[in-house]
Amino acid sequence: MSNMKSITNAARAVQKRPFRVSIEGNIGSGKSTCIKFFDKYPNVEKHGEPLDEWRNVRGHNLLGLLYSDMNKWSFAFQHYVHLSRLKIQTSQPCNSNITVKMFERSVQNSRHCFVENAKKQNFLEDPEYQTLLAWFDYSEKHLDINLDLIVYLRTTPETVYERMMKRGRAEESEVPLDYLKQVHESYENWLNSPDVGCEVLTIDADRGLACVKEDLERYSYKILGGNHTN
């Protein structure tokens, strides 16, 4: 009887979880700006990419280390990214009024985009790659990490490279255009495959910010889980 009660309580917890929206896109595609657009909705809990956490893992800047030597640091970085995204994606909302949880990139993105690209570019040895897959497979099997919607800010690599150079983040100064092309290809492969597992809303983010905001406003009902029932 106690086991049945535990299963029922777990099922209810899953049913009551917020509508999960992952904002996806290449470096410099406008993900943070997109999330800020929804500041006006008090029922939305928003999570940007935890850059500060990645820059200080007990004194180590994993993000900086990654960009300085992807062959050496991809495994450690992707392992920690999975943990940080998992904490964001599965944590309980800050209050009971939250009906939508929105975050910048997802556990699924790490698995199907960045880990796959790291393996393809030989930044990961096969034992490292298999370890990361096992980490993801366990999470997918035993935790509720499902997404309800992906908003894909689709860009060309050349556009985001120009934006990246203008904003001048220290770690990104070493990122070549070729890497952005690899990330773009990985996104296209992932979001056009059966592995997506949810609806994908694609927005042309090569256009100016005003146009992107118009699309966000136009599709806000969908993005905020309109007609969605848990």
Rank of each mutant, 00 (worst) to 15 (best):
N3Y: 12
I7D: 14
N9A: 14
A11D: 08
R12S: 08
K16F: 07
R17T: 07
F19M: 06
F19R: 00
G25W: 00
S29Y: 01
S29G: 07
G30H: 00
I35K: 03
F38N: 10
D39F: 11
D39P: 05
E53K: 13
R55L: 09
N56F: 08
R58T: 09
L62A: 10
L62N: 00
G64I: 05
L65I: 05
L65E: 14
L65P: 00
W73N: 04
W73I: 01
W73Y: 15
F77W: 08
Q78W: 04
V81N: 14
L83T: 13
S84P: 02
Q89E: 15
Q92L: 13
P93S: 08
P93L: 05
N95C: 15
S96K: 15
T99M: 09
V100F: 02
K101L: 15
F103E: 15
R105S: 02
F114Q: 00
F114I: 04
N117S: 13
K119T: 10
N122T: 06
F123L: 10
D126H: 09
E128F: 03
Y129W: 14
Q130S: 11
Q130D: 11
D137A: 10
D137R: 12
N146D: 13
I150D: 01
Y152S: 06
Y152D: 03
R154V: 00
E162Q: 13
R167E: 06
A170T: 13
V175R: 01
P176N: 04
D178R: 11
Y179A: 05
V183G: 01
H184V: 04
H184A: 09
E185L: 14
S186L: 11
Y187K: 07
Y187T: 02
N189Y: 10
L191E: 08
N192S: 15
S193M: 08
D195F: 14
V196A: 11
V196Q: 02
V196I: 13
V196P: 01
G197I: 08
G197R: 02
C198R: 03
V200E: 03
D204Y: 05
A205F: 03
A205H: 01
K213R: 15
E214R: 14
L216F: 11
E217I: 04
S220P: 05
S220D: 09
K222V: 06
K222S: 11
I223N: 01
I223Q: 00
H228G: 08
T229C: 12
